[in-house]
């Protein structure tokens, strides 16, 4: 145990915790905005998978991470349109249609990989970017300010999404649509347009999350996300639909993941228990959810399609 409590190991663990948290945070922030408008999207994981593949494919062919990320996000946006079409226009049962999107993403990403790539070649992994000044701070510098650019984007989006939801008129409209769509409709806010916008945004974020995950790994494989998208949905509940709450949940998840990996490599966790330990982040997240469940009220219209006059 003592070999864990050294300056170098702890800073490295926290730094990787922050990095692990980033894709969950991106996906969960997007899902937060969608759920705040009343749409439950369970297809996040499938969208992340398909985006991860398209990011991988483009990055592999062009050698450009950035182009890969852009195409990954576009993939998310297109799947967002599909999700919104099913949930909003067709008024499908959101839990079920989301699982459909998940299965589509899971199967299609692997199919495309086998068909168009076949042999797993790595793409260049993301370089870390040191923030001038801040990165030289003792402890904090190596933990938080020597990360790759996608991690910075993920954490900067937290205050951005909070500002959008709570300080802008558009944010208020999103909240109104999620709490009482009939009230929003009665003052001339289009419930349909609002929900399309939030769902497409959420899915674009899922696309960014999938791309981030891919670039952190540097290589595509079947079911690359390992259900990260579902964890992201759980983190939205954990964070009580608040951006900073979601960030707290993502960090908790990242810390547990990083500590487990670190302990494994240091031999604190015996190899025989390694598989069991790998479930720890999910188990702890679920336990936290159980403890927190019901403390906060979910958006009143969450999961319910809106029909005027009904």
């Amino acid at each position: 145990m003592s070999q864990f409590f050294t300056y170098a190991v702890i800073t490295a663990t926290i730094a990787s915790a922050v990095q692990y948290a980033a894709p969950f945070l991106l996906a969960a922030l997007g899902e937060t905005v969608g759920q705040r408008s009343g749409v439950l999207n369970l297809g996040v994981d499938g969208i992340m998978l398909l985006s991860a593949f398209s990011c991988y494919f483009v990055a592999l062919r062009t050698g450009s991470d950035l182009l890969g990320v852009v195409v990954g996000m576009l993939t998310g946006a297109v799947l967002g349109l599909l999700t919104a079409f099913m949930s909003v226009t067709l008024r499908a049962q959101q839990g079920i249609s989301g699982i459909g999107v998940y299965i589509l993403g899971l199967g299609l990403s692997d199919l495309l990989f086998v068909r168009f790539v076949g042999t797993p070649l790595p793409v260049s992994s993301l370089p870390n970017v040191s923030v001038p000044g801040l990165s030289r701070l003792p402890a904090l510098g190596p933990m938080f300010f020597q990360q790759n650019w996608l991690v910075y984007i993920a954490f900067l989006l937290v205050p951005a999404v909070a500002f959008f939801l709570y300080r802008t008129t558009y944010g208020t409209r999103v909240l109104a649509v999620g709490e009482n769509p009939a009230a929003a409709d009665s003052v001339g806010i289009s419930v349909t347009r609002t929900r399309y916008a939030t769902v497409v945004f959420g899915c674009t974020m899922a696309g960014l999350a999938g791309s981030t995950l891919l670039l952190l790994d540097g290589i595509f494989q079947e079911n690359l996300t390992q259900s990260a998208g579902f964890i992201a949905v759980a983190l939205v509940y954990f964070g009580a639909w608040r951006p900073f709450g979601v960030m707290t949940g993502s960090l908790l998840y990242g810390v547990v993941t990083a500590v487990v990996l670190q302990w494994k490599s240091l031999g604190i966790i015996p190899t025989s228990a390694a598989d069991l330990a790998a479930t720890a982040p999910a188990v702890i997240t679920v336990l936290a959810l159980v403890v927190l469940a019901g403390r906060f009220k979910q958006p009143s219209s969450l999961g319910k399609a809106y029909v005027r006059g009904a």
Binding site: T172, L175, A176, E179, N180, A182, A183, A184, S186, V187, S300
Partner: peptide
């Protein structure tokens, strides 16, 4: 409206 068109959380 008979059922108020208000958003309780706002």
């Amino acid at each position: 409206h008979q059922h108020f068109m208000l958003v309780p959380t706002l």
